[in-house]
Structure formats: structure tokens, C-alpha cells
Write a protein that binds this DNA or RNA. Structure first.
Lengths: 189, 189
DNA sequence: CATATAGGAATGAATGTTCATTCCTATATG
DNA sequence: CATATAGGAATGAACATTCATTCCTATATG
């Protein structure tokens, strides 16, 4: 029997939400997977909406922390910063695939509250900041920073989904090539 | 009163599915938006699952047709082919934003039947084919074709979502720059 | 008038949520 | 040390609500 039921509930909910979406996942499904009674969920969360928002904030915060930690800020050059963000994204994807799928498929959900949206916006703001620094130094194309994010993050998400679907085997060698491809998309050539 | 109720139902369903997902959209919601009775929907479709599958096949076919028509096949060079596909994707997105959002958020759904999955796979196969031709001619990077698709299609989808969210204003000038960025990601430099 | 079509109330199954009850575990008591 | 007791935690059956689907009536069409 598990020690921390709240953790069990969050883990089960994350996997189910990632696979079937918010509305496609029922409370009994979560209870079954977490091996708790349905009522137990309501000892830890006010309701289903509160659960999905808690989970969303948790996952985005984890993702953000991974990207931020050891980020080569003002010291490192732009190429190095890009590399850091790119590899950290894949590192997170490898260790937390459900979290990433969950974030990606729920970040526009109508059930997200103000706090969830703010956490997600702050997360994007960190990447935007790094990109704009790179532009000032003349290493990155003069496109809207949102466009540059979309290209790199969009490519990353789709690559990850391909790998999840078994349509792509991600070796270390390939990852380096993909990093170079994405860098070519945003750098000044 | 509309002439073609089946069209009204499909259009309403597409918008709702795109915004709220399959499970988050109810039959009464669709009936309200289409301005028909709930029972009328069952005159045109066997059930909700049959409706979503009909809609999926229709949307993917439309998308595929746009990309295929006037495609510069064996005659055109690789750069031209890439350009064609890229601009056609944005053309489809501009004229059928709900269709694209619907395709993107439902292409992995557990409710899709064999036919839907086949149509989607065939659609991807067309792009894969074009990419592999380009590789043979030495213009495109020697990466798995699935990886190249993921980069370009992933970037495209995310750019479109950014624009939809109002975070990006898509002018003709910007589109040209984005096309060049994506081409830089896949071409041999 | 006969038939086809549309509508929306009716239905039963499924959902999120509540609540009376049971189960643990830690402390108190002899 | 063995047993009794208290109180929070967990449970899952029960509840109101909402859902997909069906069915019967009203209207349109020929």
C-alpha cells in the first residue's frame, strides 16, 4: 500500500488525461488506476476541475525548472543557450512523457483557471526572454519571438509525439542532428 | 431555414470539437449550434462516433486535396516542392481554421475507426514521399523522413495556433520569412 | 391524402459528487 | 505489555444531474 495517496491520484490522473483528455477521463477511472476509492479523491481535491488545475501547475513548474536550472545566462553565448534549452526539453520529455503530453493537450483547455494560465504564460516568457537576448546579439533571425518559439517548440513537440507513436527511434546521434536542424531554422545564415 | 442540414451539423460539430474536444462536446450542443433538433442528427449519422469519423475523413481529405492539387511533381525542383507544400498548408489553415484545429486535436483519438486512421496515414504518406524524393536528389538532409515531417509540420501547427491565439500577426512578408526558416531546418546547408 | 422528414420530450445509462459507515493508527489506560 | 478508545482517513453505495439515443407527434411535401 502506497504512502502518499495524493501523489498516486496525481500520477494516475496525469496518465489518463494525457491519453484520453480531460473530458474523456472519469473520476472512477482515476480512482481505479490510483487504487483508491472514488471518494478519497475528494479528500485531496475540491473537484475534478481543481484536480486538473493542480496537476497542470505542477507539470508546467517541473518543466520550467528543468529548463531554467543551470541555464547559461549572460555568460554563455547564444548557441550554447539554444543547445541547453533544446536538450533540456528532450530530457524532460524522456523522463516525464505523460507530463509533456498532458501539458501539450491541455494548455488551451476551457477548464484552466487564472493561475494555470499565468504559470503557462510565465513559462513561455522565460523562453521568449532568452530568444530576444539572442536577437539583440545578432545571432538569431529578426522574427517575432513568438514565431521563433512556435518553430522550435512545435518541432520539438511533434518529434516527441512521433517517437511516442513508435515512428521514430531517438538515438543520441539523431538528437544532435535534430538540434542542428532546429538551430538552422532560427539562426541567421 | 438551411437547405442542407447535414452540412449544418458537420459545420457545427467541427467548430465545437475543435474548441472543446470530442468528449467535451455533447449532442445537444451540436444540435443547438446547427439549429436542428437533437433527434435530427440521428437521421444523418448513426451515432456520435460515426459523426466524428465522417467529419475527420472529410477534413483530412480536404487538406490532402489542397496539398496535392497543382503539386510540382517530377518536373519541379525540391525547393519549389517544399514551397508549394508550405504555402498550401497555410492557405488551408487560413480558409479552414476549425478543420485544421479539429484534425490536429483528434488525429490520435481512441474513437477513430480504421478508415479514419487509413486516410490520415495516406495523407502523411504523400508528404513522406515528396521528402524522400528530395533526399534522393541531395537537397534535403539525410534524416528519417518522419523526423523531417515532424519539424516542418510541428512548426506549422504551432505557428497556426499562435496566430489563432492572437499572439502572432501573419502578414505575407512574415510568411515568406517563416518559409525560409523551415526550409533552412530541412535543407542541406 | 399518404408519405417523408424534423423536432424535442422521454429514457436509461453514465457521470461527478456526497455521505454514512468502516478501517487504521496512535495514544491512553489498567 | 495488552487492551480499549478516539479521531482522522478511506471507502463505495447512493444521489442528482447530464448524456447519448430513441420514439412519438407535428409539419412539410408530393
Amino acid at each position: 500500500m502506497s504512502k502518499n495517496k495524493q501523489e498516486d491520484i496525481l500520477e494516475a490522473a496525469m496518465q489518463l488525461f494525457a491519453e484520453r483528455g480531460y473530458d474523456g477521463t472519469t473520476i472512477p477511472m482515476i480512482a481505479d488506476k490510483a487504487k483508491v476509492g472514488a471518494g478519497t479523491i475528494y479528500r485531496y481535491f475540491d473537484n475534478k476541475e481543481s484536480l486538473v488545475n493542480s496537476l497542470f501547475v505542477k507539470c508546467v513548474t517541473q518543466f520550467s525548472d528543468i529548463l531554467n536550472s543551470e541555464f547559461p545566462g549572460n555568460s554563455g553565448d547564444v548557441r550554447e543557450q539554444f543547445s541547453h534549452i533544446f536538450y533540456r526539453m528532450f530530457q524532460f520529455a524522456k523522463h516525464n512523457p505523460y507530463a509533456l503530453l498532458f501539458i501539450d493537450s491541455h494548455c488551451m483547455g476551457y477548464y484552466l483557471n487564472e493561475e494555470s494560465n499565468k504559470v503557462y504564460d510565465d513559462f513561455l516568457a522565460f523562453i521568449i526572454g532568452a530568444i530576444e537576448k539572442g536577437q539583440e546579439r545578432g545571432a538569431i533571425r529578426q522574427l517575432p519571438s513568438n514565431a521563433l518559439i512556435a518553430i522550435v517548440y512545435g518541432a520539438f513537440i511533434m518529434l516527441f509525439k512521433m517517437e511516442q507513436a513508435g515512428a521514430l527511434e531517438n538515438t543520441g546521434q539523431l538528437l544532435e542532428e535534430l538540434e542542428e536542424s532546429c538551430w538552422n531554422a532560427v539562426r541567421i545564415i
